[in-house]
């Protein structure tokens, strides 16, 4: 079925295509990133920065911002495929569905990690956050983003061809990502040393979530491409 490159070759091909498109269209940098920074500002307006609430809630606000931005990034990523019957073309291309799925996930993960890197700077400047426990922070960011992209790609592809996709995708995806929000927020709080408990169990939970959804997505992408 698949080309000589196999699943990984297909994944790299799709990921390269998506990243190239993003580099040329600059939707992430031009629209999603400014939106994310805007959300950081809005949180500051809603929660008075002088009373310390903002500082206390920083990890949670950061991850909520990431989730909202992820929804936009996903919508963009799959709107590309839904136009002009490209999903059908992908299906007929002979590439393995798992390869296409993993390619989309790879591109999404890279885009979201870059967005998070800029947001971390934004949080450091706007909310005056000091970062400690850097290895844990890195592990949590990577695993949480993989989980978001892994689960998001399944629902992104599912919603892509629906007319009500803009309203449906957040309704489907955000409850699914509730454990990611909880684990990433708590893990970050530990790494910012607000909680005495070690943060690695949270990283492990994020890892399990990512692993489960990457496996599930690799299997479900075939019926998703063929019928949904």
């Amino acid at each position: 079925m698949s080309q000589p490159g196999g699943v990984l070759g297909d994944a790299l091909l799709v990921a390269r295509k998506d990243l190239l498109l993003e580099r040329r269209a600059k939707i992430g940098i031009g629209q999603v990133l400014p939106f994310a920074i805007l959300v950081l500002l809005l949180f500051a307006f809603a929660l008075d920065p002088d009373r310390g609430i903002l500082k206390l809630a920083t990890p949670g606000l950061f991850w909520v911002t990431v989730l909202f931005s992820a929804v936009l990034t996903l919508q963009r990523s799959f709107a590309l495929e839904a136009e002009d019957g490209i999903l059908e073309a992908l299906r007929l291309s002979g590439m393995s569905p798992a390869g296409i799925y993993l390619g989309k996930v790879t591109a999404l993960t890279i885009e979201l990690l870059l967005l998070e890197a800029v947001l971390v700077l934004g949080v450091a400047v706007l909310y005056d956050t000091k970062f400690l426990g850097i290895p844990l922070l890195f592990a949590i960011a990577l695993l949480a983003t993989l989980g978001i992209a892994g689960a998001g790609a399944v629902y992104g592809a599912l919603a892509a061809r629906l007319r009500s996709r803009e309203t449906l995708l957040p309704l489907l995806l955000l409850p699914l990502l509730a454990p990611v929000l909880i684990a990433a927020t708590r893990g970050c709080e530990v790494s910012l040393e607000r909680e005495a408990m070690s943060g690695w169990p949270w990283a492990a939970l994020l890892g399990i979530f990512a692993l489960v959804y990457l496996t599930l997505g690799s299997f479900l992408f075939r019926p998703l491409l063929e019928d949904a």
Partner: peptide, 24 residues
């Protein structure tokens, strides 16, 4: 097909949500 995919994805999430909320 859409519904079947959501039905599977949702049930897999139940133990993960429960574990996360439990620890939280």
């Amino acid at each position: 097909t859409r519904c079947a995919i959501i039905g599977i994805v949702a049930i897999v999430n139940v133990p993960i949500v429960h574990k996360a909320v439990d620890w939280w």
